[in-house]
Amino acid sequence: MPEPREIELTINGERRAGRCEPRTTLVDFLRETCALTGTHVGCEHGVCGACTVLLDGAPVRSCLMFAVQAAGARLTTVEGLAPPGEMNDLQRAFQEHHALQCGFCTPGILTTMTALLADNPTPTREDVRRALSGNICRCTGYEPIVQAVLDCARGRAGRAG
């Protein structure tokens, strides 16, 4: 059996270290070793998007990376989107628009949409649908999510303007 590895990385602005086997997926490392259970395992083969986290700001599937590959990286998970106990404007927009029901896919969608808005602060409806297409939701039918993201973008543009 291969030796476990020590890895160090930054998660939600905090330095973290942990031991894992080379085969430990990043999502299992986050959930088991770091006890950050907000990131969910939905399919473990890279289709559903529930495990999406931000790797150096870009959304990636944490089930399709091994934790050893994330050594030295800067990760953001759903727990890091707002200060503990608070919600940011995107999260509040999700609540306002009822953009979640069971909430299992929600963390992966929030991270994906966070990156979209960072990259494209004024997305069209079509931009949001495209960016969202790698995240499966079985409850909402997606439209409330699209509306929440557009509403959040409008809010940010309004405040900036």
Binding site: T52, L55, A58, P59, R61, L116, S133, G134
Partner: peptide, 9 residues
């Protein structure tokens, strides 16, 4: 090609 998160990796 697939989806954003896949294209990022």
């Amino acid at each position: 090609v697939a989806h954003t998160a896949i294209r990022n990796r």
